[in-house]
Design a protein around this nucleic acid. Structure first.
Length: 494
RNA sequence: GGUCGCGUGGCCGAGUGGCUAGGCAGAGGUCUGCAAAACCUCGUACGGCGGUUCGAAUCCGCCCGUGACCUCCA
C-alpha cells in the first residue's frame, strides 16, 4: 500500500469552500498547475508566498508517492497594466522604459526570479511554460470558444461573452461573485468600447501600431488575453481535466474565474478538480504596494537593504517564517516577527546537530510513533505546517533533554526519530542548512580545539581570568564556546 | 459602495462548543567558577455588545477595526 493510500490528505477547495479529501484522477499521477510570475520586475515578497506554498504541496505530493507533474507558467505577454483589457502591456512598458527588447526584459526578470526561488529552496517545477511560446495553443482555444458560441469578434479582437456563458453555466461560482452585481458595479460599456458588456474579457486583442509583441492570427495581428495562457497551457500539459490549480488569492477574480469559464466554454466541463489559493502578505499590517513605499524585493530582504528592515533575513528565515503560518491566512511581516522566526529556526537546526550526536540508551518518555503520526496528521490537514512545526519543537525539547541526560531513547527509536525528523524538516518543509561564509578549514578547526583544550587545563587550575579571556577573544572572531562537563563545544556565529 | 475573509496573551501564530498548541520576548529556578546553551516553572489570551447552550475564543445577530478583490474617484 503506497503512502497516498495510507494518508488521507485533505485540502481546502476554494470552489466548494470546504476541506475535501484529495483523490487524484489518475493515481499514481497527480497534476498541479500554479500561476507563476509576470516577469516585468524584481521578485518580491508577494512572489515568495505562492512559490513556497506550492513548493510545499509539490514536495508533499511527491512524498506521498504521487508522480507529480508540476506546471508553473511564466507570463511574458498579454498582462496589461489595468487588468481591464486596456493600457499598456506590463512587459512592453518596462522594455520601453529600459530601452530593451521585451524578451530581454523577460529573460532578465525570469533569471532573477529563478535565483530568488533557488535561494528559498523552492524546487523548479516539472514544466515552466511561457505564454509567448504557446500562441498557437491559445489561438486554438480561442477558436474553440468562438466555435462554441461563447465569444464574438469585434474589430480584430476577440471577446468572451460572459452573459451568454452565464445563461448556460454559472459565471462567478469560483470567486463567489454575483454577475448582476458585477454588471451594475461596472456600468455600461462606453460608446467606443468594442465589448458588448463591460464584464466581457479579451481572448485575443488587436495590436495597436505601436505594440511590439504581436503575432498573426486569423483575426489580424495581435496578442492573447491574459487569462487565456493558463487555460491553454494547463490543458496542453495536464490534460482537459487535472487535479489541482493553485495561485494567490489576488488571482481568484478575475483571473481564475475567467480561466474556469474559458475551459468550460471550450471543453464543456470544469478543468480543475481542486482550486487552492494562498493568502496575501502584509508588511507591518499594511498591504504591500509600490505606492505605499513598503514594497520589498527578495534581494532587499536577503541583504537587509530596504529602509524598513532592521537587519537582513536569510532565505531560510523567510521560508520558515512563511511555514509557521498557514498558507490560507494573511501573513504580516515585521522585524520583530522575522527575528523571532530566525531564532526559532536556529533552535530547530541546532536540534538536528544534537540529534546526530545523540547516543541511544534506555527507553525514555518520547513516543516516536506518536510523533510521526502527529506530524503526518498535521500535514494531511490542508498542509498544516504551523502544527507540524509545533510538533517538531516538542520533539526538539525531548532531543535536548536526552542529550543532557535527563531523558533517553532506545537505539531503534533513535534511528526512527532521526529519519522522521529529517524527513519533515528537509524533505517536506524544504528547509536546508545555511552555512555560507562559514567554511572552516581543518587547520582552523584543529587550532580552536587545541586552544580550548589548553583552556580546559587552565580552568582546572582555576585561572578563570585567562580562561575567560580566551573565550572572549574567540567570541571576537565569532566563535561561541559552550562549556560542557569536562569538555567544550564551539560553533561559528555570523 | 459591492463581495468575501480576518480580529487570540508584549510580538508572531495554531486551534473552532467543554480537554496545556508552538515560537520569540519577559520573570523565577536547575546546571555552571562565571557565562552561553539546554532543561523546569510562570503569565491564566481570545475586538465590543447582545443571543443560543448546562457550558462559547469556538455557533447566531449587530457594531467597531482591519485585509483582499471588484467598482468609483483621483
Amino acid at each position: 500500500m503506497s503512502k497516498y493510500q495510507e494518508n488521507k490528505f485533505y485540502i481546502f477547495n476554494t470552489l466548494t469552500r470546504k476541506k475535501e479529501l484529495f483523490q487524484a484522477m489518475n493515481p499514481p499521477h497527480a497534476g498541479l498547475y500554479v500561476c507563476g510570475p509576470t516577469v516585468y520586475g524584481d521578485p518580491h515578497l508577494g512572489h515568495a508566498r505562492p512559490a513556497v506554498t506550492f513548493d510545499l504541496l509539490f514536495r508533499y505530493l511527491k512524498h506521498l508517492g504521487y508522480k507529480t507533474r508540476y506546471v508553473r507558467n511564466i507570463t511574458d505577454v498579454g498582462h496589461l497594466e489595468s487588468d481591464a483589457d486596456e493600457g499598456e502591456d506590463k512587459i512592453e512598458k518596462r522594455a520601453r522604459l529600459e530601452k530593451l527588447e521585451p524578451m530581454e526584459v523577460v529573460q532578465h526578470y525570469t533569471n532573477s526570479y529563478h535565483n530568488a526561488m533557488n535561494r528559498l529552496n523552492v524546487l523548479p517545477p516539472s514544466i515552466e511554460p511561457r505564454a509567448s511560446g504557446h500562441i498557437i495553443e491559445q489561438q486554438m482555444m480561442a477558436q474553440k470558444i468562438l466555435d462554441n458560441g461563447y465569444a464574438y469578434e469585434a474589430n480584430g479582437s476577440l471577446y468572451f461573452d460572459v452573459l451568454k456563458y452565464h445563461k448556460d453555466h454559472n459565471y462567478g461560482r469560483l470567486s463567489g461573485r454575483v454577475l448582476e452585481d458585477l454588471i451594475s458595479n461596472s456600468g455600461k460599456p462606453g460608446v467606443r468600447d468594442e465589448k458588448r458588456n463591460s464584464v466581457d474579457f479579451a481572448l485575443w486583442k488587436k495590436a495597436d501600431p505601436s505594440h511590439i509583441m504581436r503575432w498573426p492570427s486569423k483575426w489580424g495581428e495581435g496578442f492573447p488575453g491574459w487569462h487565456l495562457e493558463c487555460s491553454a497551457m494547463s490543458q496542453k500539459y495536464l490534460g482537459e481535466q487535472f487535479d489541482i490549480h493553485g495561485g494567490g488569492m489576488d488571482l481568484l477574480f478575475p483571473h481564475h474565474e475567467c480561466e474556469m469559464a474559458q475551459s468550460v466554454a471550450a471543453g464543456g466541463s470544469d478543468a480543475v478538480r481542486y482550486w487552492m489559493h494562498n493568502n496575501m502578505v502584509t508588511i507591518n499590517g499594511q498591504k504591500m504596494g509600490k505606492s505605499l513605499g513598503n514594497f520589498i524585493t527578495l534581494d532587499e530582504l536577503f541583504s537587509g537593504s530596504h529602509e524598513l528592515l532592521e537587519s537582513s533575513y536569510s532565505p531560510m528565515t523567510i521560508r520558515f517564517f512563511m511555514l509557521q503560518a498557514h498558507y490560507g491566512s494573511t501573513l504580516d511581516f515585521s522585524n520583530e516577527a522575522l527575528a523571532a522566526a530566525r531564532k526559532g529556526l536556529i533552535r530547530l537546526m541546532s536540534t538536528l546537530k544534537v540529534l546526530d550526536k545523540l547516543e541511544p540508551g534506555e527507553a525514555g518518555s518520547f513516543r516516536v510513533d506518536q510523533f510521526e503520526e502527529d506530524a503526518f496528521r498535521a500535514m494531511n490537514d490542508d498542509l498544516g505546517t504551523p502544527v507540524l512545526i509545533a510538533h517538531l519543537f516538542d520533539a526538539s525539547r525531548f532531543i535536548n533533554s536526552a542529550y543532557t541526560g535527563s531523558d533517553s531513547i532506545t537505539a531503534p527509536d533513535l534511528e526512527k526519530l532521526r529519519k522522521v525528523f529529517r524527513l519533515f524538516v528537509f524533505d517536506i518543509l524544504g528547509i536546508q542548512e545555511e552555512e555560507e561564509d562559514k567554511e572552516i578549514g581543518d587547520l582552523t578547526s584543529d587550532l580552536v580545539n587545541l586552544l580550548l583544550t589548553i583552556r580546559l587545563e587552565v580552568k582546572k587550575k582555576k585561572d578563570f581570568e585567562l580562561s575567560d579571556r580566551i573565550r572572549e577573544e574567540l567570541a571576537g572572531f565569532g566563535i561561541v564556546v559552550k562549556d560542557k562537563k569536562d569538555g567544550f563545544e564551539w560553533e561559528i556565529k555570523d
